[in-house]
Amino acid sequence: MEDSRLWTFEESLWTEGPDNYREKVDAEVVMVLPRPPFVLRGDAAIDAVAATPVWETAELSERQVSRPQEGLIVIGYKVHAQRGDEGYEAHCTSTIRRIEHEVWRVVQHQQTPALAKPLTDG
């Protein structure tokens, strides 16, 4: 998957509804989300994101892409999502694997809200 398609794919997970999640997120996905129970897998993860209202816009910046092997893409980015007066910023990672030609699924996603304080030594 070329970069422009990759970022359009990821952005759609922020701005499109539950049917999009069910199409693009693998049944064996592992997610870490910023609300309890935090660590979710499979249908519980898909249901958690499907129950969240979609964002009107999502700007993905600080984009990083790694292709550690054929058919596997790991991305990291910062998102600024907006819906009405509500905004959300987070640092995210997603791992996407190819199922078959031109068919890709998210197998891992993690969000760290941007307001989280960085770890310090001591």
Rank of each mutant, 00 (worst) to 15 (best):
R5L: 09
R5K: 14
R5Q: 12
W7V: 05
T8R: 12
E10P: 10
E10M: 14
S12L: 11
S12Q: 15
W14A: 03
W14M: 14
T15H: 10
T15N: 13
E16H: 14
P18I: 06
P18F: 02
N20Q: 04
K24A: 02
D26P: 11
A27P: 13
A27T: 15
E28I: 13
V30H: 13
V30Y: 15
M31C: 10
P34T: 05
R35Q: 15
R35V: 12
P36W: 06
F38V: 12
F38P: 06
F38Q: 01
V39G: 01
V39H: 12
V39E: 04
R41K: 15
R41Y: 12
G42Y: 05
G42M: 08
I46C: 08
I46M: 10
D47R: 12
A48T: 13
A48F: 14
A48S: 13
A50M: 11
P53Y: 02
P53A: 08
V54N: 07
E56A: 14
A58L: 14
E59K: 09
E59W: 00
L60Q: 08
S61V: 04
R63A: 05
R63M: 12
Q64H: 10
Q69L: 10
E70W: 07
I73L: 08
V74S: 09
I75G: 00
I75T: 12
V79N: 05
V79S: 11
H80M: 10
A81L: 01
Q82I: 13
Q82M: 04
Q82V: 14
R83L: 03
R83D: 05
G84K: 05
D85L: 03
D85V: 05
D85E: 02
E86Y: 05
G87Q: 08
G87D: 04
Y88E: 02
Y88N: 00
E89N: 03
E89Q: 10
A90T: 02
A90P: 04
H91E: 11
C92K: 06
C92E: 13
C92I: 02
T93A: 15
I96E: 03
I96W: 02
R97T: 12
I99H: 10
I99N: 05
I99T: 12
E100C: 00
E102K: 11
W104M: 02
R105H: 14
R105G: 05
Q108P: 00
Q110F: 11
Q110G: 07
Q111R: 08
T112H: 01
P113I: 03
P113C: 04
A114F: 05
L115Q: 06
K117N: 04
P118M: 04
P118E: 00
P118T: 02
G122L: 08
G122R: 07
